[in-house]
Design a protein around this nucleic acid. Structure first.
Lengths: 243, 243
DNA sequence: TCAAAAGTGTTTGTCTTACACCCATGA
DNA sequence: TCATGGGTGTAAGACAAACACTTTTGA
């Protein structure tokens, strides 16, 4: 039985990756290009996404979409919002583009974001014209995808304050300063290094390894890892009313 | 032009209301009943919900659904999750029920919750067999609506810790103990009255009125109100990393 | 030996917690 | 005058914030 697309329901994925060396939080986007003999009709970027198949859950669709783009499975994903405005795909450009595609202009999309390690993604093996863009410097975007990315980013900012999802963006072994840099990138703030260090090291689920950085041309830093096991065991949501 | 339903996309609404006198957080549910000559085929409750119309945004649909059930508009609403499992409507009961309705068994629903003051809802004027149930004592529920309610409740628990949405569930004039009781109901915890009082009163957006309770048979309590204006002005999300 | 980033302590103030009794009122 | 829920204060400990210099390393 051939899988059957639901023509008016899609899943779009905001793929976040963090580049440790440039200290940049990035989003993975796909080139959209259409021209006639004389004219460039469409030349921008969009999120990766696809129809939901009739036999799939929404989570399944998101997982499939990520796998097709990056080859990766088992990445952190979160469904954060559905977008369903009747005119979300009705700009001139978007209608032109849709003409060549198989989907309904009245499509509702369920949006997910993924957090993954950029080092796990090999863009040269994708034939999608996929490219990383810093969240602070996005290109021209098609459909309502700028809005979707903004919402994903907002949710990520909030979530990273209350859950240790930030480690999904880092290599398994990281330095304290890596974590601080990442928080600073995501939140757009500066953090005092001494206070941050003390706070992070005091968490029982942050484990110092018997290892230091290698191949750096300066003093090599202590490496740490995040223990999900310990986190899960000790963590109980603390109900501190702090509005 | 007659509004046209999208047959595979719906919005379901979890309507939360708080009953100050019984100190119970309640959900508004609708009776679902179907019988043959001999048999009761369906006898349970469901959330209020409806198809999305082609010209509507998802928010529009939610607003319309609430208005049709309660007559209310301008209530706090939040889209919290989309549900799209292929078998979310495929229990025997649900299929029987759907046969009499106009929708597709492969329907995706975008779920919202509303927070409102029970006193604003006049159930006698609705002809929907709608009824309030305590969140702690829900009846047998149709479709995947138990799951939807659980997720809504989870989101509410989290949100009420970081945003002052709790006041949407209270009358405009309330006592400190009302607020404490409500937090205790939602979170299922006990809170120290003196500490809570101090903390709440210290918020600049909690304003003591020149008024006390009337018609109570004990010492009447001081009344307060919540000032959204002050809250909005002073509030900037404080980025305290507290995982 | 130098450049660069890693790493380190203390103080001050604020916030959280734990805890028990008196007060004002209407019946 | 009594029953009921409203309202009050303090001390101890934990946590957050501000702040500048020394150390280690590879080049």
């Amino acid at each position: 039985m051939k899988p059957e697309k639901i023509l008016n329901i899609s899943v779009d994925c905001v793929v976040f990756g963090y580049d440790v060396t440039t200290k940049s939080l990035n989003v993975l986007l796909i080139k959209r290009y259409l021209e006639t003999d004389n004219d460039i009709l469409v030349d921008d970027y969009v999120l990766t996404g696809y129809h939901v198949y009739t036999h799939e859950t929404l989570d399944d669709t998101a997982t499939r979409v990520l796998k097709e783009l990056t080859g990766l499975t088992n990445q952190y994903k979160k469904q954060f919002k559905a977008f369903g405005s009747p005119n979300r795909l009705t700009s001139e450009k978007d209608l032109l583009w849709i003409k060549n595609e198989e989907f309904n202009s009245r499509t509702i999309t369920v949006a997910y974001y993924f957090l993954l390690k950029t080092e796990d993604v090999d863009l040269d093996n994708t034939n999608n014209n996929a490219k990383w863009f810093p969240i602070t410097d996005l290109p021209d975007l098609g459909f309502d995808h700028e809005k979707i990315i903004k919402e994903a980013y907002k949710d990520l900012k909030e979530k990273c304050l209350s859950e240790p999802i930030i480690f999904k963006l880092l290599p398994d072994k990281f330095t304290i300063n890596d974590v601080q840099d990442l928080y600073e990138s995501i939140l757009g703030i500066e953090i005092d290094n001494r206070n941050f260090r003390r706070k992070l090291i005091s968490k029982k689920y942050i484990i110092a390894l018997d290892e230091k950085q290698v191949g750096v041309s300066k003093k090599p830093a202590q490496l740490y890892m995040f223990s999900k096991d310990i986190y899960d065991k000790m963590f109980q949501k603390n109900y501190l009313i702090s509005m």
